[in-house]
C-alpha cells in the first residue's frame, strides 16, 4: 500500500527533515510511527498525503507513483487517503454532520447518499446523536472522533493519523486506538504517528521509530 524508496526531504530553512527513508507497508497493515517531536513523523505522513513532495527518492501509494502524479490529480489522490490530525482540523462554524459530509460533498455525492454515509460514519465513532452540534460544543475526545469520522466517511483504503491522541487522557486514547483496530479489522491500512509509547508497546503492531529524520528501528516489514 505504501512504499518509500530512499526518500529524502530537505527544507531550505531547516535542512534535512527526512534522510534516506525506505520501507513498505502492506495493504491491510496497521503500523505506528514513533519518535521525538521533530524527528520527521509529520513530514513522512505529509509526503504520503501529497501535502509535500520529497526532495529525492520515490513514494508509491496504492500503486501510484506520487512523483509522477500531475497536480490536477492531487485532489483525487487525497480522496483515497483519510487524514486525521492532532488539532482535528474541524470547521468551527459548521455542524458535526456538515464537517463529516465535507469529503463526500467534494467528491460529488448526492444528497441522500451523503446522509446515509455520514450517519454510518458517525455511528461508527459513537456520535450519531451529536450530528447537529457544532465542534466547540464537543469535548476533545469527541472532536477527535468527528475528525476520524470525516477521515473514514468516504471509505478510503488508507488512513493516516498524526498524533491523534496528543491532547487526550490515557482512557480516551485507548478508545481511539480501539477504533483504529476496528478499521484495520475491515481491511483499512493505517499508519499512525504517536509518541504515546506506553500505549503502543502494549499492542501487537509494527512500530517504526524515527530519530533525526532517519528510520532507526522497524519492528516489522523487511
Amino acid at each position: 500500500m505504501i512504499e518509500f524508496d530512499h526518500v529524502h526531504k530537505r527544507y531550505p530553512e531547516r535542512g534535512e527533515a527526512l534522510s534516506d527513508i525506505s520501507f513498505a507497508l502492506a495493504a491491510g497493515e496497521m503500523a505506528f510511527l514513533t519518535g521525538h517531536s521533530g524527528a520527521g513523523k509529520s513530514t513522512l505522513l505529509r509526503l504520503i498525503g501529497l501535502l509535500e513532495r520529497p526532495s529525492r527518492g520515490r513514494v508509491v501509494v496504492d500503486g501510484r507513483d506520487l512523483g509522477a502524479l500531475p497536480r490536477r490529480q492531487i485532489p483525487l489522490h487525497r480522496r483515497q487517503v483519510g487524514m486525521i490530525f492532532q488539532d482535528h482540523r474541524l470547521l468551527a462554524d459548521r455542524s458535526v454532520f456538515d464537517n463529516v459530509a465535507l469529503p463526500l460533498q467534494v467528491m460529488g455525492y448526492g444528497h441522500r447518499e451523503i446522509g446515509r454515509r455520514v450517519r454510518a460514519a458517525l455511528d461508527h465513532v459513537g456520535l450519531l446523536k451529536r450530528e447537529r452540534a457544532t465542534p466547540v460544543a464537543l469535548s476533545g475526545g469527541e472532536q477527535q472522533r468527528v475528525g476520524i469520522a470525516r477521515a473514514v466517511v468516504a471509505r478510503p483504503p488508507l488512513l493516516l493519523a498524526d498524533e491523534p491522541t496528543g491532547n487526550l487522557d490515557p482512557e480516551l486514547s485507548r478508545e481511539i486506538f480501539e477504533l483504529f483496530e476496528r478499521f484495520q479489522y475491515v481491511g483499512v491500512t493505517l499508519l499512525i504517528a504517536t509518541h504515546d509509547l506506553s500505549l503502543v508497546a502494549r499492542m501487537p503492531y509494527r512500530i517504526m521509530t524515527l530519530a533525526d529524520g532517519r528510520l532507526v528501528n522497524d519492528s516489522g516489514g523487511w
Binding site: 485532489p75 474541524l90 467534494v106 470525516r150
Partner: peptide, 16 residues
C-alpha cells in the same frame, strides 16, 4: 484560509 486548507485536505479540486 483554514476552511480552504481543510477542503484541500479532503480532496477538493481547485474548481470546487
Amino acid at each position: 484560509r483554514g476552511e480552504i486548507e481543510i477542503m484541500e485536505l479532503v480532496g477538493a479540486t481547485a474548481a470546487f
